[in-house]
């Protein structure tokens, strides 16, 4: 039987207590126009993701329709989302669902 002792307590302590604690996030959505290699290029060059991670995120956008590409404080996330719009990617900011 698995212990539900200290580990669980620690998880509860670390879990967000309210929506105020949730980080904002930039979500990139799939679109039929952007080339897959362009999307991966943007993730690599703008966010600095290593090649494999950029490819993984691009494929998630392509297959699942969207992917979270950044999380953080609201101002930073809004700046990232605007940068994605500069690149012509379809992106939105939202408050993570915890």
């Amino acid at each position: 039987m698995t212990s539900i002792g200290p580990q669980l307590d620690e998880e509860l302590l670390l879990a967000p207590r309210s929506s105020l604690d949730r980080p904002w996030r930039t979500v990139v959505w799939n679109d039929p126009v952007n080339l897959m290699q362009y999307v991966a290029h943007v993730f690599r060059t703008y966010f600095g993701y290593p090649r494999e991670e950029a490819e993984r995120l691009m494929l998630r956008v392509h297959h699942e329709g969207r992917a979270v590409v950044a999380t953080g404080p609201r101002e930073q996330i809004e700046r990232h989302t605007e940068a994605m719009h500069e690149y012509g990617l379809w992106a939105t900011s939202d408050k993570g669902d915890g």
């Binding site: 809004e78 989302t81 605007e82 719009h85 992106a91 939202d94």
Partner: peptide, 26 residues
């Protein structure tokens, strides 16, 4: 609409507020 998408998901009010701050620069 596609060049200047809604900046905030599922929140038209917030979206318009952010758009007001970013649209001209974009």
């Amino acid at each position: 609409r596609r060049l200047l998408p809604d900046p905030v998901q599922d929140d038209p009010e917030e979206s318009e507020e952010v758009r007001g701050l970013t649209a001209v620069a974009l």
